[in-house]
Design a protein around this nucleic acid. Structure first.
Lengths: 331, 331
DNA sequence: CTGAAAGCGCTTACAG
DNA sequence: CTGAAAGCGCTTACAG
């Protein structure tokens, strides 16, 4: 810019004015400056500009795995939401490692991102407190920060807005649906409720339990602690799978028993080609990109100065019949 | 940092030394500085540091769609490759819109990224020339820049290293495999070779044609211009699908004709649950993350000053039998 | 309409 | 071992 100014025979400020399209420059001077810019191949250094203005116009996305279909969709939704703001997006994966999450988040903060969307991997978010106080906005997506819920990550302090899927409602709806088809022995194949980051599992089991109770059914302990191998012999006529991975495990286990197994399967998460599966299957589907959009909009409001207490947003789910065969009724 | 210096009663430079862990500071002064840092909650502004040092330690990833399985895997591979370098990654999707690609790429250049990995959407890369001359390294992934190949994007000028899948070899191997199973009437379901960004289609058709010719078979014109609806009645006993989307279309079309259709299907790109498909299927699989790793390594070498002419790297593919049924032989 | 000075938050090169 | 000055590339306030 200095070079451009010298070449055009004007002051730095005038170049700045031309580059920024500010009013108050004669066409003649502007032309001279433009000429110098092109001759020199000048391109403004945005980083320097942002340093001076104190903003960065940058957001971060910290995923557990950016290649996971849900998280990839969240990212696309976030992109959509921030495109209008003209923000750029940093991103990275933690692979579920709290140490990597902390390193990534602090690296982003060191570059002074305006905000971050985090798919939480850590149980303890004390490391973020100072940064949040310093002004970065953090929004959590797909699950709340901390072990069991939004209010436990910091022993009561709510860290930031959180956007999740209504897993409890989805599980409840799935079991209720199965009951309405005559099923009474309904299994659950999913994560271990004692594991780290098991908010999701707890929600699913809550929904399952509620729906069973509402229907006046007592769930056998074993039904909610199934492994894929046990599924076919567990005495259940239907199964709720907690994730795409578990749905795949269930389908494989059932397929191994022979053609067209008679088991009603409901899986959390829609997937490509589900309708070609050799069994009847219903999926719990949801708008994962909507989570990213919602997170982006919440972030935008925080950046605009909104100071309301942190919100927990739950996106609705719906049951979608898929599969090539009829949904098997009770045997 | 100025505040820290004042509080600790030292000069700016001393704070800098402590923050950077440089030698030559007494334990006593270092302690005073550390204290001040903690009291003030000082966190170094990385952006300012990078401005001064002239580097940015930042790379960009420009995808057509970050949520596409292949591109998501490329991103993960890239992440792996740059993690060791301590670089941060910007990313964004173009949805195949050349204007969005240009906007994104120039925005990244304006922030002075050290390099970019681009999944090309544009046919004309003149917009990048000035940036490349100014020092950004660009590596192209999954397809070469430009309409038909690496050397046409700019009328002969090769823009940068390019990492692709060996689509031609994969198609050749697939058709050869089908021929060895006795098939002689082999179809191709894929993109239109006349469309924009059809490097991939051309490569696939080249491989197809070569293999047919090697086997002494003459391909009917219609066999390579199939639509999913025509597939079952086209008189072919086997089909090569050019992408996961085309494989899904073929499987749907065949499933609509009834159970266990007798058609050998080879699909480019592995997919989850392929082994539960109601027909015999073989996939052409490849290591998409490897493309990202290779791109990251090429980028790293360019940043390290390597000045060799741009390379075209082709990652190998392999045929993987999948599907629940036997691979159907010739009828 | 145009410009000279100061400063964003840091580091580099030098001097003491 | 420690520091005062200059500068990275830009903008913000001010003055002419």
């Amino acid at each position: 810019m200095k070079d451009v100014a010298r070449r055009a025979g004007v002051a730095l400020k005038t170049v700045s004015r031309v580059v920024n399209g500010e009013a108050g420059v004669t066409a003649a001077t502007a032309g001279r400056v433009q000429g110098a810019i092109e001759e020199l191949g000048f391109r403004r250094n945005e980083s320097a500009r942002l340093l001076r203005t104190g903003r960065t116009a940058t957001l971060g996305f910290i995923a557990e795995d950016t290649a996971d279909p849900d998280q990839a969709a969240v990212y696309r939704g976030l992109e959509e939401a921030v495109a209008e703001l003209g923000f750029l997006l940093y991103s990275g994966s933690t692979d579920g490692d709290p140490a990597r999450e902390e390193r990534l988040a602090l690296a982003l903060c060191a570059r002074r991102v305006d905000g971050m969307v985090i798919v939480p991997a850590a149980a303890d978010y004390r490391y973020l407190l100072a940064e949040i106080e310093a002004g970065v906005a953090a929004v959590f997506a797909l699950r709340p920060p901390g072990l069991t819920g939004p209010d436990t990550a910091l022993g009561g302090t709510v860290l930031g807005d959180t956007v999740v899927i209504d897993e409890r409602g989805g599980a409840n709806a799935a079991v209720t649906h199965l009951v309405s088809h005559g099923h009474r022995r309904i299994g659950y194949l999913g994560g271990d409720p004692g594991a780290l980051g098991d908010y999701r599992t707890r929600q699913l089991l809550l929904g399952y339990t509620e729906a069973m109770a509402s229907a006046g059914l007592r769930a056998d302990q074993a039904w909610t602690a199934l492994t894929p191998g046990e599924l076919a012999g567990a005495g259940v006529t239907a199964v709720l799978c907690g994730s795409r991975a578990h749905t795949a495990q269930a389908l494989h286990a059932l397929a191994a028993r022979g053609p067209a197994p008679r088991m009603a399967v409901i899986g959390f998460g829609d997937f490509e080609l589900a309708d070609l599966m050799p069994t009847g299957i219903t999926v719990i589907s949801y708008d994962a990109a909507g989570i990213g959009r919602a997170a982006g909009e919440l972030l935008a409001r925080r950046l605009a100065g909104e100071d309301a207490p942190p919100r927990l947003v739950e996106l609705p789910v719906r049951l979608t019949p898929r599969g090539s065969a009829e949904f098997p009724p009770e045997e």
